Amino acid sequence: MYTPAHFAASDEALKSLLNYSGAANLVTMTPDGLLATLLPFVYEPSVGEHGALHAHMARNNTQWSSHATAEALMIVQGEDAYISPSWYASKAEHGRVVPTWNYSTAHVYGKLVIHDDAEWLGRHVRRLSNQHEAGRPQPWTVDEAPERFIAGQLRAIVGVELLISRVEAKTKLSQNRTPADVDGVIAGLRASGDPASAADVERARTS
Score class of each variant (00 low, 15 high):
W87F: 03
R59I: 05
D117H: 09
V108S: 07
R177M: 08
M57A: 05
E79V: 03
Q63F: 00
T105R: 06
G122L: 04
S104A: 14
Y109F: 15
T141S: 15
F149G: 12
H67A: 10
G95E: 14
D117L: 02
P99C: 06
L112A: 14
W101Y: 11
E161M: 09
V113G: 04
A169H: 05
P146R: 08
A68C: 06
H94V: 09
Q77G: 04
D116R: 07
A89H: 10
D117R: 03
A68H: 03
Q63G: 01
A72S: 14
Y103F: 14
N176Y: 05
R127M: 13
E144S: 13
M74L: 13
H56G: 01
E44L: 02
P139R: 10
H132M: 12
I164V: 15
R155C: 12
R166W: 10
H54C: 03
P99Y: 05
A81D: 01
P99G: 08
N176D: 15
P85A: 07
D116Q: 11
K170Y: 05
P139T: 13
Q131V: 04
T171I: 14
M57L: 14
S129Q: 09
A156Y: 07
S104P: 01
T62G: 00
V98G: 11
V158D: 08
A156N: 14
E147R: 10
R148F: 10
H56A: 02
G159N: 07
L162I: 13
V113Y: 00
G122Q: 07
K170L: 12
R177G: 03
A68P: 01
V76I: 11
T62F: 00
F149K: 13
I75H: 00
N60Y: 00
V47E: 11
S129V: 10
H54S: 00
L163H: 15
G51W: 00
A151D: 15
E133M: 09
D143F: 04
W64V: 09
E168F: 03
H94W: 05
T141R: 14
E133V: 08
E44M: 06
T141L: 10
G159Y: 04
A55R: 01
S90D: 12
L73Q: 06
Q77W: 00
S84N: 09
V158R: 04
H56Y: 00
W87H: 01
V142N: 12
D143R: 06
Q131G: 09
E44T: 04
A55D: 00
V98A: 13
K172V: 07
T69D: 14
E161F: 03
L154D: 08
R136C: 05
S84G: 08
Y88Q: 08
Y82D: 06
N60I: 01
W140Y: 11
L163N: 15
I114R: 10
W87G: 00
A92W: 01
S174E: 05
S129L: 08
N60R: 03
L128G: 09
W101I: 04
A151T: 13
M74Q: 06
G159L: 08
L162T: 11
V98F: 07
T171D: 10
L173C: 09
H54I: 03
E161N: 09
S66Y: 00
I83S: 01
R177I: 03
Y82F: 12
Y109K: 09
E119Q: 13
P179N: 07
W140F: 13
P179Q: 07
I157T: 10
R136Y: 05
V167S: 10
Q138H: 15
